[in-house]
């Protein structure tokens, strides 16, 4: 059984080592006995979204995100159809913003976005919101760790993904972060989220393989992953207690 992964805009939206999400997911899926094919694409022109079991987009500069948005909007309906049909997708950093109805840049110029969800994002070119993050997710046991690095606020999310314990939510005074739409996950947590959170990755693997007959998740040791996660969570909690 071969699972197909699409890493879209892998050289445009790759600011924070995000390719590692694909590396770790590929390794986890192989451990479960699957063959994995990873397709990297700098444009969706020759891509058929419905061919894939998992689609990923990482974070980019503000200008890179606008270029990615311009490209993906040419196949807006196909992308939406794949999302509606239950394809698992993860969009991290400012790729998350593309799932909403619009992104407005620092100069006030507004760009239409995919519109899978109704939320709107506004960038501020003077102020960056950065910081370590701890959050919870109602369908995964145990906190997640990560980092927020953005210059925008997102308002009007109906179904958020995470609840923040440390770090910024979608907008000021909002503890909710990211969004979920069917099996599409959007979050402003940047970088190799799936490397840092092995329990969340397990959830992704189970979701990707959910319709495969006879699949049952085989546990593996993951000593370094667990060690890295626990140390980061411990260090962040120390900081949280001091604050």
């Amino acid at each position: 059984m071969t699972l197909k992964i699409l890493h879209l805009y892998n050289d445009l939206m790759n600011l924070y080592g995000e390719y590692a999400n694909i590396s770790i997911l590929e390794r986890r899926l192989r451990e479960q006995g699957f063959e994995v094919e990873v397709v990297k694409a700098d444009s969706c022109a020759d891509i058929s979204f419905s061919d894939f079991d998992f689609i990923y987009i990482g974070s980019g500069t503000e200008s890179a995100q606008k270029r990615a948005l311009e490209d993906i909007m040419t196949k807006r309906d196909e992308f939406a159809a794949a999302a509606e049909s239950g394809t698992v997708m993860l969009l991290t950093g400012n790729a998350f913003e593309m799932l909403g109805s619009s992104v407005t840049d620092g100069s006030g110029k507004s760009f239409n976005a995919l519109g899978l969800c109704g939320f709107e994002t506004t960038e501020n070119s003077e102020r960056r919101i950065t910081g370590d993050a701890i959050c919870t997710c109602r369908f995964v046991a145990g906190e997640l760790v990560g980092f927020i690095n953005k210059c925008s606020e997102t308002k009007g999310v109906d179904e958020p993904l995470f609840t923040m314990i440390m770090g910024a939510g979608n907008s000021i005074n909002d503890k909710n972060e990211g969004c979920r739409f069917k099996n599409v996950f959007g979050t402003h947590l940047i970088g190799p989220l799936l490397v840092k959170n092995p329990h969340f990755t397990k959830y992704m693997v189970e979701l990707i393989a959910r319709n495969i007959e006879g699949f049952s998740y085989k546990a593996s040791a993951l000593a370094y992953e667990r060690g890295a996660y626990e140390v980061t969570l411990r260090e962040l909690k120390k900081r949280l207690a001091q604050a």
């Binding site: 924070y16 080592g17 995000e18 390719y19 590692a20 370590d132 760790v145 980092f147 940047i190 970088g191 190799p192 490397v195 840092k196 890295a228 980061t232 260090e235 962040l236 900081r239």
Partner: peptide, 11 residues
């Protein structure tokens, strides 16, 4: 400053 951010190791 403090941070636990290690994304850069992957770069």
């Amino acid at each position: 400053y403090f941070t636990g951010e290690t994304s850069w190791l992957w770069d």
